[in-house]
Simulated assay, not measured.
Amino acid sequence: MTLHKVLSFLFLFILVLIQYPAFSQEESPGDVYNFYQKFISDIRSQKCPMYPSCSKYAMEAFNEKGLVNGFLMTSDRLTRCGHEHKFYDMELVEGEFKFIDLVTYPDSNSQMFKKSEKEYSKSFDENISDDIKFFLHLIDKQLYREAITEYHRLKFEDPTETLTLEYNYFKALMSIEEYEKIIFEHGNFKNPLLANDPNIILKVSEAWFGLNQTEKSIEILDSDIDWKDINDRRLAFKGFLYAQLDQFDKVQEQYAMVSENYIFREYLSQNIQTINSITSLKQKKPVLAGVLGIIPGAGYMYSGHTTTGISSLVLNGLLGYATYTSFKTENYGIGILTGMFSTAFYIGNISGGYKAAKRYNTSQKENYKKKLMYSFN
Rank of each mutant, 00 (worst) to 15 (best):
I128E: 12
S129R: 10
S129C: 11
S129K: 11
S129A: 11
S129M: 09
S129V: 13
S129P: 12
D130C: 12
D130G: 14
D131R: 04
D131P: 04
D131Q: 05
I132F: 03
I132R: 03
K133W: 03
F134L: 14
F134S: 13
F135S: 00
L136I: 07
L136V: 08
H137G: 15
H137L: 13
H137E: 15
I139F: 06
I139D: 01
I139H: 01
I139A: 08
I139C: 13
I139S: 12
D140V: 06
D140R: 02
K141N: 08
Q142F: 04
Q142G: 08
Q142K: 07
Q142S: 15
L143V: 03
L143H: 11
L143D: 08
Y144T: 01
Y144E: 01
R145F: 01
R145E: 10
A147F: 00
A147C: 02
A147L: 00
T149W: 10
T149P: 12
T149A: 15
E150V: 03
Y151C: 07
H152K: 10
R153S: 15
R153G: 07
R153N: 14
R153V: 11
K155C: 06
K155M: 13
K155W: 00
F156S: 15
E157M: 15
E157V: 12
D158W: 03
D158I: 06
P159A: 09
P159T: 05
T160Y: 05
T160D: 09
E161F: 03
E161K: 04
T162L: 03
T162Y: 04
L163H: 04
L163A: 04
T164Y: 05
T164G: 05
T164Q: 07
T164M: 08
L165S: 10
L165W: 01
L165D: 06
E166I: 11
E166C: 07
Y167V: 05
Y167H: 12
Y167A: 10
Y167R: 03
N168T: 04
N168H: 08
N168D: 10
Y169E: 14
Y169R: 13
F170W: 08
F170V: 08
F170Q: 08
F170N: 02
F170Y: 15
K171Q: 13
K171F: 06
A172Y: 00
A172L: 01
A172V: 00
L173W: 00
L173Y: 01
M174T: 03
S175P: 01
E177D: 12
E178T: 01
E178D: 10
E180F: 05
E180T: 02
E180Q: 13
E180C: 05
K181W: 02
I182M: 07
F184D: 11
F184R: 05
E185M: 08
E185H: 06
H186Y: 08
G187L: 04
G187P: 01
G187K: 09
